[in-house]
Design a protein around this nucleic acid. Structure first.
Lengths: 339, 339
DNA sequence: CTGTTAGCGCGTTCAA
DNA sequence: TTGAACGCGCTAACAG
C-alpha cells in the first residue's frame, strides 16, 4: 500500500542523470540524444512513472484543459455535441470539463468562476436562455481565456460562433414537401423571440416563394414546444376550407403530437399529409418512420467547435480573427411516399 | 489586455502583510484574527483574486476532482446519472471530469491513465461491456485513488457498488400485471449473459410463483434489444393457443416494437394486452402513454454513488468498508385500465 | 548534448 | 497572532 509517486527526480537518481534531462527526454526534446531518451523512457516505464500534470501546468501556465458549458447534458443534442468535443479534444491531448447551466444565469456565472479557478485554456459554451447580460464573460477575455460559442448564437464582437443553418434547414424541409407534390403546406412555428425559430420560419417562406406558392398567414400555427400544441394545431388545420397536404414543424414535439392526432382521425401519413419536423431527440426516429426529420449534426458541431477553439488557443498571440461557422442540418427520410 | 493574475503575494504586498497570512485568511484558518480576515477578503475581492487550484492542489496533493467513466454519454440513463454526480460533487466543492469508454476496453485503459495523470481524488465508473480483465484498475488502488462502480456490477473485492435492483423491478413489473388481472403473462427477455436481464427474468418468475401462476417456458421470448424482436415475438405470441393478456419486456425497445405490431393488428393496449417495459430512454414516455414503464433512477444513482465516493475519499485513512447500495426502480403508469 | 539554478502559486512547517 | 522559509513536481533560462 505504499504511495507510489515516482517523480522525474527518482528516475534521474536511478539513472545518474539530472532531472532536467529526464524532463527533456520525456518531452521528446531535440536537445537530448536518442539513446538517452530510450534509456529514460525505459526506466520511466519500468518504475511506473506518470507525469504530474498539475506541476507541469503550474510551471507552463497552460493546463491543456477546456471547459464546456451546456444548458443540460441530458438533452440528446448536447450530449452528441459533447461526444464530438471530447473526441477532438482528446486527440489533441486536451482534457474536458463539462458543466451544465440548467438554463440558469446564476449557475452560468458560478461555472465561469469555477473554470477560471481550474485555469482552463479555453471555453466552449452554449449560452443559457436566461442570459441577457454578458458581463460575466468579460473576465475570460481579461485573462486571455479563449471562448467559442456553439449552437446558440451570441453577438458579442470578436467571438467565434459555430451554428446550425436554420434558415437552410427550414428551406429544405419545405422544399422537400413541395417537391413531393404538396401545395398547401402548414407551418408549426416555435417561439419567435428565439433566433432559430425565426430563421426556420424564414426558410419556410423563402421556399414557398421560390416555388411560386402563396404564403398564407392562416397556415402558420404557433407552438410552444408541447405535444398538445401539435394536437390542437392539427385540429384547427383539419377545419380549414382548403385541405392542407403538408406540415413543416419547427420542433419535433409538436410534430409528434400532430402525428398522433392525425393518425387517430384516420389521416394517412405521409399519403394524405406529409410531415417534416426538426428533431433534437432520438424520439422521432423511433416513434414513426413516416416522420421525415431535419437532423442536427451534434457530433460534427462539437468537433468543429473544438477545432476552432484549439486554433484560437494556439494562435493566442498571432491573434486569430473571430469567425462564424455555419453547419448544415440533414434531411432524413425513412419512409417515402407521394409523387 | 494585461494578464490579470492576482496572487496572494500581490494582495499581501498591497496590505503590508505576509503571503502566508493572506493564505490563512483566505482559508478561514483559526490562526488569523477576524479583523485581518475581513481586510484580506475585502482586498481579494477588490483585486479580483482567484485562487489558483493548480498550485493549491500541487501543494496539498489533493485536487478535489473526481473522474467519471461511462460507456456513452449520449445514452439518456448515463447522462441522468452524470447530472446527479455533477450536482452532488459540485455542492461538495469537487470538479468532475467525464470520459466515455464507448464500451471499448482499450479506451477504458487509456482513460484510467489520463485520470491518474490529472491526479483525480476518486473515480466513479460504469465498466465497459468489453472489459473482462481488471488489471488496469490495480494502479488506482496502488495510488490510493478511490473507486466506486455504478450501474454495472463489478465483483472485485473491497470495492463499493451502486446498483439498481433488477430483480425487484422485474418482480414489481410482473406483479403489477397480475394485480391488473392478467393471467397469462409473456416475458420478452434480454441477453442472459448479462446480470441485469437475468435478474429481471428471475423477478418475473418469482412474481408468478408468489401469486400461484404457473411458469411456462413457451411464454418466454428472447430478444436482442431490437424493435424487430418485439414485432416477431408479438407475432408468435398471438399464435399461441392460450391468449396472452400481459407482457413484461425486459427492455423498452422490444416493448415498443410489440406495441406497434399489436396496435397494427387491432389489439387494444392495455385493454386486451397490458405491457410493462424497462426503460432507459425517454422514448417510452412519448411514444405511447399506454406503455407502463419501470423507470431507472439515474439522477438518484449519480447522487448516491458520489456521496459514497466522497465518503471513501475523506475516510481514506479511517478506511471505510466497501458496500453495495441497491436502488429501487419505480413503476410509472400513465394510463390505467383493466380491473 | 547535459547540468545548474530558479521559480510557477500555494500551504505548511518553525520561529518570533 | 503573524512572518520567514521551504518545497510540492515540473520546466525554462542560462551555462558549459
Amino acid at each position: 500500500m505504499q504511495n507510489n509517486k515516482v517523480t522525474i527526480h527518482d528516475i534521474a537518481k536511478a539513472l545518474n542523470l539530472d532531472s532536467s534531462t529526464v524532463s527533456r527526454a520525456l518531452n521528446d526534446s531535440p536537445r537530448v540524444i536518442q539513446k538517452t531518451k530510450d534509456i529514460v523512457l525505459a526506466k520511466a516505464a519500468e518504475m511506473g512513472y506518470q507525469r504530474n500534470h498539475l506541476a507541469s501546468s503550474l510551471r507552463k501556465s497552460k493546463t491543456n484543459t477546456i471547459g464546456v458549458i451546456v444548458p443540460r447534458i441530458s438533452r440528446h443534442f448536447f450530449s452528441s455535441v459533447i461526444s464530438g468535443i471530447e473526441e477532438t479534444a482528446y486527440e489533441a491531448g486536451y482534457t474536458v470539463i463539462i458543466c451544465q447551466s440548467l438554463e440558469e444565469f446564476n449557475r452560468e456565472k458560478k461555472i465561469i468562476n469555477t473554470l477560471m479557478g481550474q485555469r482552463v485554456d479555453g471555453v466552449l459554451m452554449s449560452i443559457s436562455m436566461e442570459t441577457k447580460d454578458y458581463k460575466h464573460l468579460e473576465v475570460l477575455k481579461k485573462q486571455g481565456i479563449q471562448l467559442v460559442f456553439f449552437d446558440r448564437h451570441c453577438d458579442i464582437p470578436n467571438y467565434s460562433n459555430v451554428l446550425i443553418d436554420d434558415f437552410k434547414g427550414g428551406f429544405e424541409a419545405t422544399e422537400h414537401l413541395i417537391l413531393k407534390g404538396c401545395k398547401h403546406i402548414a407551418h408549426f412555428s416555435g417561439p419567435q423571440n428565439l433566433e432559430i425559430y425565426k430563421n426556420r420560419f424564414k426558410g419556410y417562406k423563402h421556399a414557398l416563394s421560390k416555388h411560386g406558392l402563396p404564403f398564407e398567414e392562416a397556415l402558420v400555427f404557433p407552438s410552444k414546444l408541447m405535444e398538445d400544441d401539435g394536437r390542437k394545431n392539427s385540429e384547427k388545420l383539419l377545419a380549414l376550407p382548403n385541405p392542407v397536404d403538408g406540415i413543416f414543424s419547427a420542433n419535433d414535439v409538436a410534430a409528434i403530437g400532430a402525428m398522433k392526432y392525425l393518425t387517430d382521425k384516420g389521416v394517412k401519413i405521409p399519403e394524405d399529409i406529409a410531415i417534416v419536423g426538426f428533431s433534437n431527440e432520438p424520439i422521432s426516429t423511433v416513434i414513426n418512420p413516416a416522420l421525415t426529420t431535419i437532423n442536427q449534426p451534434g457530433i460534427e458541431m462539437g468537433k468543429a467547435a473544438t477545432e476552432l477553439l484549439l486554433k484560437h488557443i494556439t494562435k493566442e498571440n498571432g491573434a486569430l480573427d473571430a469567425q462564424t461557422i455555419i453547419m448544415d442540418s440533414n434531411l432524413i427520410e425513412r419512409q417515402s411516399s407521394k409523387k
